[in-house]
Design a protein around this nucleic acid. Structure first.
Length: 842
RNA sequence: GCCUGGGUGGCGGAAUGGCAGACGCGGUGGUCUCAAAAACCAUUGGGCUAAUCACCCGUGUGGGUUCGACUCCCACCCCAGGCACCA
């Protein structure tokens, strides 16, 4: 790429030929030099303050795409900026290497998941190096290596010891044709299997859970962390804390047997309005409460619900459906019997899987009652009007005073009233105040091969479930497996894996063949980076104390309710075990935006990735880095269209001009040239204005405007040098160029390093401090005041920066343009915003 | 459907209560060239106009607050992310 900068009308004597900008030569050169110098490594014993700059580790899907580049470049710019601010920046990289795609590849192409994954990692490692990022490769981890997953297993045992792991039944997606468990992603929108098109059903399996709900209240706190409000809000909504009461009703089965039916409600103050009960189709009492004549209808409905997704079931717009079981519940409040129905809008996973229905004051219950012609009883009445329960068209929420509720009648709708109901319920022994969460326990079992083995053993001699003794870890995942079209994990077909002995009695036993959710691997990788090769434990406690918590975490907002919640839970649990001295793993959090292609997030599994290779080959990494950061604000992402790439030319031209600006200075012989001090002041004003805005932009992650600031700076300098031959002789000019390179260096590390060396430096530009902003040098002597009349711009005036309001008023009122616009009218109001604007109201 | 964001020229975007469209792409005209490419210079929201004067319109839609609204408030429409087994 040869770049011509300006016309050849110069008067300077030229010392040498201008060197050509060849990114494909200088970029690999500097990448290698930095590696040799150890420039990317953060030493554990460095005296500077530490800064742990963490980017979410990638899944090794095969090739790095534009989305990866976008995320990692932005994170690297941040890390490099912090380095210039004087921190010992630790910026590790690794691979989240277990997961479904490796098994898909194995099934489709007959490659072993391990081999496929490791070769992907190798390829991505090479591609990652071409970005020029400040990666500390000495700390690389891959979660599929036994040295790593040994400790994932170890953490499972620790959580089990503390009573945080337990077994329970949970539904999985089951394809009856392929006889296999399917991930949600493998079930198409119409509820069929993506491989064979068969309708997928739900099947109950015994699986492992972590008790994350025990930490719900602590997770709500976000103690001492600086996270985006929207992320905290989404987590709070996801955890969904609600206060109310648990009330136990008695249901009578057709055979006369009575069963407890506990419910959770946030509105115990409406209990006198109960007209029916609804329980989930999966509720354990469904069978017992179904009368013989309703049996067929109920079974058909239960089967139908099995094929529905939770999103469908919770869709409030859907027409309500349900079946009456034939049995009744007696309300202790009124002594009356009300019917029990099943409906898919009640979920077994929330509350108790049963609700008391109060149609007058709950919209879903109201729609259900109208659909099935069930009675509606009002327990609140607005203070200013009478409402008729038979003719009302929607439920009445929080309004007025209590009615139809015996001794409670007349009370206002208020928290105190709710409290009175709860007190009464507790006195009567019918129930108690309770807090409920929407958050569910974390199901970690996967019926898959390519994951961390769950280190548990099932004794066949009667010892029950036994943990694998610590000294026997890791439970090694067999490297070679055969994928058969059956429902079980391939691990079931490896007798050497499955068959073992009971650690308690020594008798015959079987290993757990389910593996762990990959979110388990990503819940502690940030701890492993602190001492990546440590083998006496998951991490060196001293080094974790030094580096943790993470100072800056960077990753997509799509991880808000899962990974970011799991990692926090994990950290809190380890804190409680005394393994860590902090409760929150990530102090600052930033979500980069998403790069969309065809209106979807770019990802290999969606098949819409764009490869950066051609762009990088043609323009070099620095240009692609700056181009991506110039697309828009880093937290917004953007749509990648066919026209997007064409904009890269603008960045290439910009870098070419920067190259020309600096190399011109280097080759011009300035002996005996003098420079006007006024022009020097202009250069400094421009320089310090730029320092001010660009450092501020970098601070707030506005990399796009940081770049446009640098473009304007560059344009300004080019104009000055064109008008002032010989300016290169001035030390002020040289300083201005060094400012340009320093400010640009986090975005474009290679070209700035090369030019920095050309200016005669022998140390790396990346060890420089950020240029210091001097507001006095940046100050403008005059400002432009906009003159509006009734909010419309009518004139502008240039005034001294220290002008008073009275002077502005005089100047404005005597301006011919203003006089003409006023046309004799008298101003009613004169609004002056200092140094900015005047608005005359007529 | 629910939770969380977002919507500004032909395109990416700037402006967070004060000049809408910075910066860049693309377009148009020019310089250089035998020619083209590259590079450089000028110009570029729409309408009206001889005009680059003046005036009018314009930030998803409809309403509101304010001397003044892309920015704040209310309602709606559209797009994206997440919804618990993709990671």
């Amino acid at each position: 790429m040869d770049t011509q900068i300006r016309p050849e009308e110069k008067t300077e004597k030229v010392k040498a030929e201008r060197p050509t900008y060849r990114p494909n030569e200088i970029e690999p050169k500097w990448q290698q030099k930095w590696q040799e110098m150890g420039a990317n490594h953060a030493p554990d014993d460095d005296p500077r303050p530490k800064f742990y700059n963490l980017m979410m580790f990638p899944y090794p899907s095969g090739d790095l795409h534009i989305g990866h580049w976008y995320n990692f470049v932005g994170g690297d710019v941040r890390g490099r900026m912090m380095r210039m601010k004087g921190y010992n920046v630790m910026q590790p990289i690794g691979f989240d290497a277990f997961g479904l795609p490796a098994e898909n590849a194995a099934i489709k192409r007959g490659i072993q998941p391990r081999k496929w994954t490791l070769s992907n990692i190798e390829r991505m490692r090479v591609q990652l190096r071409t970005m020029g990022n400040n990666w500390d490769w000495e700390r690389e981890v891959a979660s599929c290596n036994p040295e790593y997953y040994k400790w994932t297993e170890w953490f499972f045992l620790k959580l089990y010891e503390k009573g945080l792991a337990y077994r329970a039944k949970a539904a999985v997606n089951w394809c009856p044709q392929d006889q296999t468990v399917l991930a949600n992603e493998q079930v198409l929108a119409d509820g069929t299997c993506e491989r064979c098109g068969t309708l997928v059903i739900k099947r109950e399996l015994e699986q492992w859970f972590f008790r994350i709900t025990k930490y719900a209240d602590r997770l709500l706190e976000h103690k001492g962390i600086n996270w985006p409000e929207k992320t905290k809000l989404m987590q709070r909504n996801w955890i969904g804390r609600s206060e109310g009461a648990r009330i136990v009703f008695k249901a009578t089965a057709p055979d006369g047997q009575e069963y407890d039916m506990p419910i959770f409600t946030t509105r115990p103050d409406t209990v006198y309005g109960i007209t029916f009960f609804v329980i989930a189709p999966e509720h354990p009492l469904v069978e017992k409460l179904t009368t013989p004549e309703k049996k067929a209808e109920v079974e058909a409905y239960v089967n139908l619900a099995k094929g529905e997704t939770e999103i469908e079931r919770t869709n409030a717009e859907r027409e309500k459906s349900g079946v009456f079981l034939g049995s009744y519940v007696t309300s202790p409040f009124t002594g009356e019997k009300v019917p029990v129905w099943i409906s898919d809008y009640v979920l077994m996973g929330y509350g108790t899987g049963a609700i008391m229905a109060v149609p007058a004051h709950d919209q879903r219950d109201f729609e259900f009652a109208r659909k099935f012609d069930l009675p509606v009883i009002l327990t609140y009445m607005p203070n200013d009007q009478e409402i008729n329960a038979d003719t009302m068209t929607e439920s009445l929420v929080h309004e007025g005073h209590v009615v139809n509720s015996e001794q409670f009648n007349g009370l206002p709708d208020s928290p105190e009233t709710v409290k009175k109901f709860i007190d009464f319920i507790e006195q009567q022994g019918w129930g108690k105040a309770e807090v409920n969460y929407r958050l569910r326990d974390w199901l970690i079992s996967r019926q898959r091969y390519w994951g961390t083995p769950i280190p548990m053993i099932y004794c066949q001699n009667g010892c029950g479930i036994q943990p694998v003794p610590e000294e026997q870890l890791p439970v090694i995942l067999p490297a070679e497996v055969e994928f058969k079209p059956t429902g079980e994990s391939p691990l079931n077909y490896i007798p050497e894996f499955v068959n073992t002995t009971c650690p308690k009695c020594g008798g015959p036993a079987r290993r757990e063949t389910d593996t762990m959710d990959t979110f388990m691997c990503s819940s502690w990788y940030f701890l492993r980076y602190c001492s990546a090769t440590y083998d006496k434990g998951p991490f060196d406690p001293e080094l974790v104390k030094k580096w943790m918590p993470v100072d800056q975490y960077i990753g997509g907002a799509e991880h808000t309710t899962m990974h970011l919640l799991y990692a926090r839970f994990f950290t809190m649990a380890l804190y409680d075990m005394g393994l860590l001295n902090f409760e929150e793993p990530f102090i600052n959090l930033f979500h980069q935006g998403t790069i969309l292609r065809d209106s979807r997030k770019m990802s290999k599994s969606k098949g819409n990735v764009v490869a950066p290779d051609i762009l990088v080959g043609q323009y070099g990494a620095d240009t692609v880095r700056a181009f991506l950061m110039f697309l828009g604000p880093f937290d917004k992402g953007g749509n990648w269209n066919d026209g997007t790439e064409q904009q890269v030319g603008g960045i290439a031209r910009f870098l070419g001009r920067v190259w020309g600006l600096v190399t011109d200075t280097v080759i011009v012989d300035t002996t005996g040239m003098n420079v006007d001090p006024k022009i020097e002041a202009n250069v400094q004003r421009l320089q310090h204005k730029t320092i001010g805005r660009v450092t501020e932009d970098l601070e707030v992650w506005q990399f796009n405007t940081a770049l446009s600031g640098l473009m304007e700076y560059n344009n300004g300098l080019l104009k000055i040098v064109a008008e002032t031959p010989g300016i290169q002789a001035s030390p002020v000019w040289r300083e201005a160029l060094e400012t340009m390179l320093s400010l640009l260096s986090p975005l474009c590390p290679h070209i700035t390093e090369e030019l920095w060396q050309m200016l005669g430096h022998t140390t790396s530009i990346h060890n420089q401090a950020m240029p210091q902003y001097n507001p006095e040098l940046a100050a403008d002597p005059t400002v432009t005041v906009v003159v509006q009349i009734n909010g419309k711009v009518r004139d502008r005036m240039e005034v001294p920066a220290n002008v008073t309001e009275e002077e502005v008023r005089q100047a404005v009122l005597s301006s011919p343009k203003v006089e003409q616009a006023l046309n004799g009218a008298t101003p009613k109001k004169f609004i002056y915003i200092e140094g900015k604007l005047v608005n005359i109201v007529l």
